[in-house]
C-alpha cells in the first residue's frame, strides 16, 4: 500500500469515528446499515469477484447469521456475547453444507442450485412460526446493555466491519487468496500445478458465509429485529448489484456500491413503492454502460493501480 492510500484510509476512519458526534440519530443508523451491507457485499465479492464462484443467493448466509444470533439471544440462557460468535459460525457451517452439495457442479448449476436451496431455507423460516416467528420475524431482541444505544451499536458495527475487512484483505493477499484468483482465471491450469481446486473453493465459501453471518449479527445489533425477507432472493440481487456497481475486481468497490444502493433505497423508498423497478433499471444501465463498476472504471482511467494493480486485464 502506498503512503497516500494509508493516509486516505486513516482520514476515512477518523471521519467514520466522528460521525455520531455531529450527525443526527437517523443518519448514524443509516451509516451503520451501510457499513454492514458493505461488509456483506465484500464477503460476496470474496467468492464471486475473487473466487469466480457463482454465489447467487448470498443473502441466505446473512439471514442464517442473523437468525442464529437472534435465536441464541432469545431462546437460550447462555452469555449473550457468545451469540455474536455463534451466528456467524452457523452461517459458516451452512456455507460448508451448501458447498459440499453444490461444489462439484459446474458454475451455472452451482448458481441455480444455490438459489433453489436458499429459497428452501427462506420457505422454512417463513413457515416455522413456533421457532423463527414466521413471516412476522422476531422483534425487540434483547441486546446486551453495552450495545443497546444507537451510538454504541454504531461503534460496534464500525469496529467489527473494519476488523472483518482487514481480515478479508489479508485473506485475499495471502497465498490462499492468490490460489483462489488463479482458480478463477484458469481452473484447469491451477489443478495441473497441484492446487486442490475444490478445497480452495469450499474454504472460500465457508469464509464468505462466515463474514456474511457477521454482517447478519451486526444487523441484529443495529436494528434489534430479524425477518424472513433477510433471506429473500431480492436481497441477494441487491447485494449482487452493490458489487457490480462498485466494481467486481476491486476490494473497496462493494463497500462503495453498498453506500450508493443503501442511500438510494432509503430515499427512493420515501417517495415510491417501486424500489425494485428503480433497482432493475439501475442494474440494466450499469450492465450496459459500466460493466466494471465505478471503481473499475476509475481504475481503467488511471492505470496506475488505484487499489489492486494485479487484477487488471479482467
Amino acid at each position: 500500500m502506498s503512503r497516500q492510500t494509508i493516509l486516505g484510509l486513516g482520514a476515512g476512519i477518523i471521519v467514520l469515528l466522528l460521525f455520531p458526534v455531529f450527525l443526527p440519530r437517523f443518519y448514524v443508523y443509516l451509516v451503520s446499515i451501510i457499513l454492514l451491507y458493505g461488509l456483506l457485499a465484500t464477503s460476496l465479492n470474496l467468492v464471486l469477484g475473487y473466487g469466480g464462484i457463482f454465489q447467487f443467493h448470498h443473502a441466505v448466509f446473512y439471514g442464517v447469521g442473523a437468525y442464529g444470533t437472534t435465536l441464541m439471544l432469545t431462546k437460550t440462557g447462555l452469555p449473550p456475547m457468545l451469540a455474536f460468535i455463534v451466528g456467524p459460525l452457523a452461517s459458516a457451517a451452512f456455507g460448508l453444507v451448501i458447498g459440499i452439495i453444490c461444489i462439484r457442479l459446474s458454475k451455472l448449476y452451482f448458481g441455480m442450485l444455490q438459489i433453489s436451496l436458499g429459497s428452501l431455507v427462506w420457505a422454512i423460516v417463513y413457515r416455522w412460526y413456533s421457532f423463527t416467528g414466521g413471516d412476522d420475524g422476531i422483534h425487540g431482541i434483547p441486546i446486551p446493555e453495552m450495545l443497546s444505544s444507537p451510538k454504541s451499536a454504531y461503534y460496534y458495527t464500525l469496529i467489527i466491519t473494519l476488523a472483518s475487512l482487514f481480515v478479508m484483505w489479508k485473506i485475499i493477499r495471502s497465498p490462499f487468496g492468490s490460489a483462489l484468483q488463479g482458480i478463477r482465471d484458469n481452473p484447469v491450469r491451477s489443478e495441473m500445478i497441484g492446487i486442490n481446486v475444490r478445497m480452495h473453493q469450499l474454504l472460500a465459501l465457508v469464509l464468505a458465509g462466515f463474514f456474511a453471518g457477521v454482517a447478519g449479527s451486526l444487523f441484529v445489533v443495529v436494528d434489534n429485529t430479524v425477518f424472513p425477507d433477510m433471506l429473500f432472493w431480492t436481497l441477494s440481487l441487491e447485494i449482487l448489484i452493490m458489487c457490480l456497481l462498485g466494481g467486481w475486481f476491486t476490494f473497496l468497490g462493494p463497500m462503495l456500491g453498498a453506500a450508493v444502493i443503501v442511500a438510494l433505497r432509503t430515499f427512493v423508498s420515501a417517495y415510491t413503492d417501486y424500489w425494485a423497478l428503480v433497482l432493475g433499471i439501475i442494474m440494466m444501465l450499469v450492465i450496459l454502460f459500466l460493466p466494471n463498476g465505478i471503481l473499475g472504471y476509475v481504475e481503467e482511467k488511471f492505470k496506475r493501480g488505484f487499489m489492486e494493480p494485479e487484477i487488471e486485464g479482467q
Binding site: 431480492t234 449482487l240 448489484i241 457490480l244 423497478l277 432493475g280 433499471i281 442494474m283 440494466m284
Partner: peptide, 14 residues
Amino acid sequence: LLLTFAFSLVFGDL
C-alpha cells in the same frame, strides 16, 4: 444472467 435478474425486478414491479 444479471440482465435477466434486472428484467425480473422490472417486470415484477411493472
